[in-house]
Design a binder for these strands. Structure first.
Lengths: 135, 135
DNA sequence: TCATTACCCCACCAACCCGGTGGACTGAAT
DNA sequence: ATTCAGTCCACCGGGTTGGTGGGGTAATGA
């Protein structure tokens, strides 16, 4: 399941997508409109900024805004960044791979099935962007 | 991600599937063969029994065994039991549904996408059984 | 320049979950 | 009665989740 943090991230990003090209948006505005705890949102936005998804401007008239066009930001990227692995097992994860202990991947039925699940999921989240979230 | 507990559950169930119709299997045998901490495995098997997937026999010659035929036990059932929801959001879960707060399901882009992910996943795990894990 | 604005950063918190352990008890078979 | 093996319950350390508080610092604009 996606954590609260991930859900907040998507809400905030949706909001910033709608406000794309309208200049910086205050954290407090996003927090209020999307009903996200202010300080918690601060952390999330900062993390998204460090990952290169958002950018910010300090001082009066400052705030956060999308660094890239909404259709350039894949949903999968955001999930991996804020929530972690998309796959159901470490041994089938593309970005967070870890070998199974005591289990031969070559002939593990669970492994094979989870590869299928992973691919079916990626098929969707790798091909959707922030733009799709607000349409 | 599936928890260790879930992975242990699948390992144990695979083993019991191979030993199907050979009578009760000792917890200690499963623990040893599958390298699962004994006491932890105890809890897991008990949970699977309470859910009607396994049955057990006490005393000498006792142990655990599958209550139903391996092809009758869906992977999805085991995941839901030991790991919890399969969906990525509470508001798209079929068995663990919870309403989103401050988010209209009718027009939430994330919601719609997660319904797709859920269905793609269920397509797989609802149609695979313990038997498929050992083939 | 200088105050204000608003992001930046760090430390901390309670509650919960995960992975696992210890010990006592109960029921069945010999 | 004894032994075997599952049942039950309580507990535990450590990590994660979902926050909160407070001060620091960079940019703005008057």
């Amino acid at each position: 399941m996606l954590s609260m943090k991930s859900q907040y991230a998507f809400k905030a990003l949706s909001y910033l997508t709608l406000k794309f090209n309208e200049g910086p948006v205050l954290i407090s505005e996003i927090a209020k409109k999307k009903k996200i705890p202010l300080k918690f949102l601060e952390n999330i936005l900062l993390e998204l900024k460090k990952a290169g998804i958002l950018d910010s401007k300090k001082g009066k008239g400052g705030g956060y805004f999308l660094k890239q066009r909404p259709e350039k930001v894949k949903v999968a990227t955001v999930i991996r960044l804020i929530n972690g692995p998309i796959a159901m097992l470490p041994c089938v994860s593309l970005y967070f791979y870890e070998r199974c202990k005591n289990c031969d991947e070559k002939k593990c039925g669970l492994h094979d099935m989870m590869v299928e699940v992973r691919d079916a999921t990626l098929q969707i989240v790798e091909n959707r962007t922030l733009k799709d979230l607000v349409m």
